[in-house]
């Protein structure tokens, strides 16, 4: 029987410094890693520990998988990762979780909202959407960061500004003199006029819990259906595959049943954003 606890090896090919607290690690797994956007992996820093991360790269590249990692202050795994260099070895288990229901999105407007390091999985989603952009009625991205320095994927974001396939608006909580876009939290750039056919549109949100919590009333007011509003939940995970119990909220395992859920599935859990 296959042992799902054994990680496969992956070599760090490159380390991209996104900003002072976020790095993107380019991994070459020993076997191609097939995943769909929104699925996550358990990444082992040998001898240190294991943590869940969602690939931020395109799911069409299975031999070069990127994860974008925020260094948590005092964080065991994320600090160790940030100290690693090209050539170093990590372990990978997974992918786990369901990923986004792209098939259901097709033919409709897709409203992608990323905040902070939550933009990482949203980048993988954007790659997948843009890969067959004509399948979706409209692709809309709203991305917020704390300040211009803490933004990630700066060049890619710039290229999207002039990409006719996507409607983007960027914001920062606190601007500096270089900043030419919006100022304010991400909900300030979410406008009813962003969407034409809101009843059939889908929204996908990933970011800090507080951001997701504030997004809910805004999306509902815009007219999104609860079953069409997807959120990524971050819960403590140990196994990633429905065995260890850690990630449970209410009657769901965030790892196995998610990690993305439509709002109707999670709204009744009082601790959902905690």
């Amino acid at each position: 029987m296959e042992n799902p606890y054994v990680p496969i090896e992956a070599v760090i090919k490159d380390v991209i410094v996104e900003n002072p607290i976020i790095k993107t690690f380019v991994l070459k797994p020993e076997e191609p890693l097939k995943f769909s956007p929104g699925q996550f992996i358990m990444l082992t820093v040998p001898g240190v520990g294991e943590s869940p991360f969602t690939p931020s790269s395109s799911c069409f590249e299975t031999e070069r998988v990127e994860v974008t990692v925020l260094r948590q202050s005092g964080g065991k795994v994320t600090s160790a990762l940030h100290g690693m260099k090209p050539g170093d070895m990590v372990g990978v288990r997974g992918p786990f979780g369901h990923g986004y229901p792209l098939e259901r999105f097709k033919g409709n407007e897709v409203y992608v909202v990323g905040g902070g390091v939550g933009m990482a999985p949203m980048r993988a989603l954007m790659f997948a959407l843009l890969h067959e952009a004509d399948q979706y009625k409209h692709i809309i991205l709203r991305y917020g960061a704390r300040n211009p320095e803490l933004r990630m994927y700066k060049e890619l974001c710039k290229s999207w500004e002039t990409d006719p396939r996507v409607d983007v608006v960027y914001t920062v909580d606190i601007a500096d003199e270089t900043w030419t876009h919006n100022v304010g939290v991400v909900t300030t750039i979410m406008k009813p006029e962003d969407i034409q056919d809101v009843k059939n549109a889908f929204s996908i949100g990933c970011g800090p819990p507080i951001m997701l919590r504030f997004m809910v009333p805004v999306l509902l007011k815009m007219g999104f259906a609860e079953e069409h509003m997807f959120f990524s939940l971050e819960k403590n995970m140990s196994c990633g595959m429905g065995l260890c119990g850690h990630c449970r909220i209410g009657n769901l395992y965030v790892c196995k049943d998610g990690a993305d859920f439509s709002y109707d599935k999670i709204k009744d859990f009082p601790d959902v954003w905690a």
Binding site: P46, S238, C239, L243, C244, H246
Partner: peptide, 18 residues
């Protein structure tokens, strides 16, 4: 049935313990 996984070094390699 809840458990925790942890990693540690053993000899030249590493192990995961449940």
């Amino acid at each position: 049935h809840c458990f925790l996984l942890y990693d540690q070094k053993v000899g030249e390699g590493f192990e995961k313990v449940r």
